[in-house]
Design a protein around this nucleic acid. Sequence first.
DNA 1: GTGGTCTAGACCACA
DNA 2: GTGGTCTAGACCACG
Lengths: 131, 131, 131, 131
Amino acid sequence: MLIDPKSPVPIYQQIASQVRLRIASGVYRPNESLPSLRSLAAEIKVNPNTVQKAYDELTREGLVESRRGSGLFVVDRAAAGATTGDEKRCQRELSEIIANALRAGVLPERIRTLFREALDGEVAASTRRAT
Amino acid sequence: MLIDPKSPVPIYQQIASQVRLRIASGVYRPNESLPSLRSLAAEIKVNPNTVQKAYDELTREGLVESRRGSGLFVVDRAAAGATTGDEKRCQRELSEIIANALRAGVLPERIRTLFREALDGEVAASTRRAT
Amino acid sequence: MLIDPKSPVPIYQQIASQVRLRIASGVYRPNESLPSLRSLAAEIKVNPNTVQKAYDELTREGLVESRRGSGLFVVDRAAAGATTGDEKRCQRELSEIIANALRAGVLPERIRTLFREALDGEVAASTRRAT
Amino acid sequence: MLIDPKSPVPIYQQIASQVRLRIASGVYRPNESLPSLRSLAAEIKVNPNTVQKAYDELTREGLVESRRGSGLFVVDRAAAGATTGDEKRCQRELSEIIANALRAGVLPERIRTLFREALDGEVAASTRRAT
DNA sequence: GTGGTCTAGACCACA
DNA sequence: GTGGTCTAGACCACG
């Protein structure tokens, strides 16, 4: 794993990104365990807390799940519903819309707000539909 | 602020809950700054990292946002009405993509990450394109 | 000028990068003055000190120079010697070597060290030649 | 450390000079940490930001480097002997490019910036490529 | 605890 | 008006 301690990008985000990539590309497969906190921390020479923070983020995203006493496992997305294909398409579409908005002069900060509102709205709507 | 260190509920969650309440009830108003990490930590006698973790969660939820060098502020969800046509279109498109992704089973937290990465990438690209 | 206050990349570096691009692409021409600290700060809504820090960096790189009381000016590189063509070639070559080294498994930190040594050595050698 | 606040030489330059001397004379040894920002600021009774500015300059010169969360360290220029063949080749190539650039009149500080940007770009690209 | 970044607002020398 | 320096104090990520 390639980490640059001098980059302004926080180390825990660098770790999270790389793990995301490895999951997406199939290097880490569903129901397989991730490297342990301590082993990964030792490998890239950072504090275990830093790795923990990265794993936290991935857990919140639903990409991995912890099984008590045995480690962190890649969730089986086929069984769960969403596929990486859906995610790739989603991001491709987001990138396109964002690029258009930036070209039209909308500020990044503004786009973030629009997104936050849209997400909140859609989550609320989908929750209503589900109940 | 009232914290119960004996409770099974993690302290950082107790903090987050109380701040959420205060925002919802208008004790902390939009564009107002929250108590600083260190001051709140001192007040309730916990480690600043614990407060940090609570504030992290609120940031991820979009309730507050940090402004570099000046503090954490309650997000102003009112000052958000899309004004320009470009912005309206952008938001309409975002909503559609988000709705699709949710229907496909992608988790909201995951969509947030995909968006964040897409925006970062496009901002960087547009800077590189700049003439 | 497009600035993203939420990016992990420091604002002053975003500013410096964009100004570098504009100089390289001829938007800001030799012996022309840059936007004043205060006016640029007002435009992108940051503190003048932040712009100052960016201008500092450009000054140390020899891209601009301050003329007391009247502003910052793009240095005339034709008169000075170096051309942007030389610089572009230099960076293209650096990128290639770096990419090779990374592929070979050399860590970024290590490459930085190798670079530092090489630069010091060559500066010393060129100084000796000059005297 | 002796500082003269009345001198026309900026305080931060006085600090930088004295630290440079102490490194050169071996008072501060490789892999040793410098006095912390705050402690040095307290000792000579200036604002921590002023010390920071001095340390900034030394960092850019490659004399010291920061290790996140633990302090500023004198760079160990001895522990730098290239070991692997890949590293040797890398450094030989770097030296050649640098020598060319210097002959073309590119300033050392400028080369440093070009290198920094090239490395950042390649690290990011390789993360994106990661399998 | 550490360094790094940012803000707010001050004062200076110069033109 | 310009840039350059400095102070006071904040938040941040990391160990």
